[in-house]
Amino acid sequence: MIIDTHCHYDMMKSPEDYIDEVEKAGNIVIGMTNLPSHFDMGFKYVRKYKNVRLALGFHPQLASDYKNELSLFAKHIERTSYIGEIGLDFSSSYISTKDLQISCLKYILEKLQGKNKIISVHSRCAEKELFTLLRNYNMKNVIFHWYSGPLSLIPQIIGEGFYFSINEAMTLSSSGKKIISRIPVDRILTESDAPFNRKDDIVSAIRTLGLEEKQIERNFRLLIQQIRQ
């Protein structure tokens, strides 16, 4: 079984064909959404599937143009067990909206408090700030998607019980390899980040990691058990 914990299949050319293939293969994919309105549009198509899931998201890169959708996020929060993509992005293209991003994320985390969800987070150039907020709001079951932050923060993220989703591109870069080497095997999940990631072959990533698909499946099953407690 292949498990893809971070995929944007709603952005693919033929989303329905893709999720049909995933379902027939018996694989699991969690579709990220960039806005609550995207989740609202896609949920009715996905709910009939067993292995295909859809997450409720609010991408930090869109905060300045779509902050009015925060109320829609709160409205849909009980419709899914999956949240993503949410987080912070302080890279050069988005640092100008830093304060607004933080404000939006605080609103989202406040709404998530006390709710058992699996949460996939975007943390580009904002890993420390994001980790602090996640801890302050007592978030659980968090997956750091395509982590590229400081190595020194990894033990703290692990200590909080969080996970990392690894893609093929990470296994092929020197910086990605250094990050992966610091992560215990029981905290590794897999992702494609398709269609935005050209190196999205999960099977190749698992082989490069020297792991078995069953290890990733065990990790994911444990995460699922945690939200059902």
Rank of each mutant, 00 (worst) to 15 (best):
H6L: 05
C7E: 12
H8P: 13
H8R: 05
Y9N: 04
Y9K: 06
M11V: 07
M12K: 14
K13R: 10
K13S: 06
K13W: 06
K13F: 09
S14F: 15
S14V: 04
Y18T: 00
D20V: 01
V22N: 13
V22S: 12
V22Y: 12
E23Y: 09
K24P: 12
A25N: 14
G26R: 06
I28Q: 10
V29P: 13
V29W: 14
I30R: 04
G31C: 08
M32P: 12
M32C: 03
T33I: 07
T33S: 02
N34T: 01
L35T: 00
L35S: 07
P36D: 05
P36Y: 05
S37M: 04
H38N: 02
F39D: 02
F39Q: 05
F39L: 01
D40Y: 13
D40E: 14
D40V: 05
D40R: 07
M41P: 06
M41W: 13
M41L: 15
M41I: 02
M41N: 10
G42H: 12
G42C: 08
F43Q: 01
F43P: 02
F43L: 02
K44H: 09
K44F: 11
Y45N: 11
V46W: 15
V46Q: 14
R47H: 12
R47S: 07
K48S: 09
Y49N: 11
